[in-house]
Amino acid sequence: MTASNPLLLEALNLSRFYRLPRRGLFGARPVLKAVDNVSLTLRDGETLGIVGESGSGKSTLARMLMALEQPDRGEVSWMGENISRLSPLALRSRRHEIQMVFQDPYGSLDPRMRVLDSVAEPLDVARPDLSAELRRDAVLEILERVGLTAEALRRYPHQFSGGQRQRIAIARALITRPRILVADEPVSALDVSIQAQILNLLSDLRAEFGLALIFISHDLGIVRYLADRVMVMHHGKVVEEGESEAVFSAPAHDYTRALLAAMPKLDE
């Protein structure tokens, strides 16, 4: 279904190295290959799951896709444009097309900002000319869409539960109607019963807004449930990639197999 859809996001041979503190006085500084030669594509309407454990490089990869971090090698293209060739101003003007939801709902909203201003922030950048009234209407519309009410507008993040904050973060990411949403472990910090609410919300919004989704998680069950295609990362490298069902039912790489075997299951 998706092979013919337009290509929204493309990464080619991305690498990101971190220099570690030197061992001993004269030793060379060891280099950590956080992301090592990773390529990926994301087509319109598609959901790509990225699976990996801590230190696999999946969050570094997400930040490079979002142009929050510069790759040491390789390039990222949004809608066919190589973003490293864009001027800062041009890059800014394209950010409304690609937005992000973070793992920690307690850390991703500015504690000193009202929900109205937090949610409106991406809009303020994309449409600084908007009147206060239209801005408020836009925020209210998207808040209601994620299951919150006008009451939330004037309140601060600490007055909300983790699940509600994640709804606010999603509203904020979607207010500019992006075509791509990068979600980095968006439900890992939430209770099981709340996780399901947020996952349902994400899949509803995905359908409604025609979102292409990059869903990063360590939880294989969730990725399997949500993703069309999946990429398994280990020590900065992609060890396996393919249609979600194929990877999970017949894993080809040893590491994927080990991961699946280690995952606790309910029917053991």
């Binding site: 019963s193 399901a196 996952l199 069950g221 449930y225 949500l226 993703a227 979600s244 069902e245 309910l266």
Partner: peptide, 15 residues
């Protein structure tokens, strides 16, 4: 509420 065993495209039943 757990996604385990749910097939893609079906809705989860959150509390």
């Amino acid at each position: 509420a757990l996604p385990h065993g749910h097939s893609r495209g079906t809705r989860l039943s959150p509390i």
